[in-house]
Amino acid sequence: MRQLQEQKASKEQNNNNASNNHSLVTMLHQIQETYNYLPENVLRELAKEKNIPLVDLYRVATFYSLFSLTPKGKHKILTCTGTACHVRGSEKVTEEISRVLGIQPGETTEDGEYSLEAVNCLGACALAPLVVVDEQYHANMTPAQIGALFNGVRKSTCQDKESSHCHCSSVAVGSKEKS
């Protein structure tokens, strides 16, 4: 009986170490870092390789808000929806970004250029309402500033690319906007 218990403990220990080194959440982070999202075929391979039921993988991947099963846009737009941002009017700012880009938080524009995420709190409450575009912080945003902000993003995107390959003009930005 005692031997059995020891065997069980040792097996548990091995499992623990294995899990410790390769926590599923960490693995999913690594995949997302490589592909910018969690592609289905990669998840299927991982499930096979690690002998984890795909359903378990799917459950973890969909439980956490930072994991995405669909590709993300080239430009990441985060709107902070923390309490400080909310009381200073972030909801209207997010609505205006949604209107300008034609997507809701969590979505990506059809051409794959922009993704919009509403995040709970970025911890920079003095800058509320806060919008982060490609890791650039934009403080004290109002709906009226959004049009100019995205024109700026578009311009810098255009400069980054050869004009013939630039898709910016087709981006939904300003679709309903007057110049």
Partner: peptide, 23 residues
């Protein structure tokens, strides 16, 4: 150990589940 965006993971037993690689 790095989280992945879940408020409830701050609850201690949930936090442990997350470190162990579960929801």
């Amino acid at each position: 150990s790095i989280g992945a965006g879940a408020f409830v993971s701050g609850e201690t037993s949930a936090l442990i589940a997350s470190i162990e690689g579960r929801a």
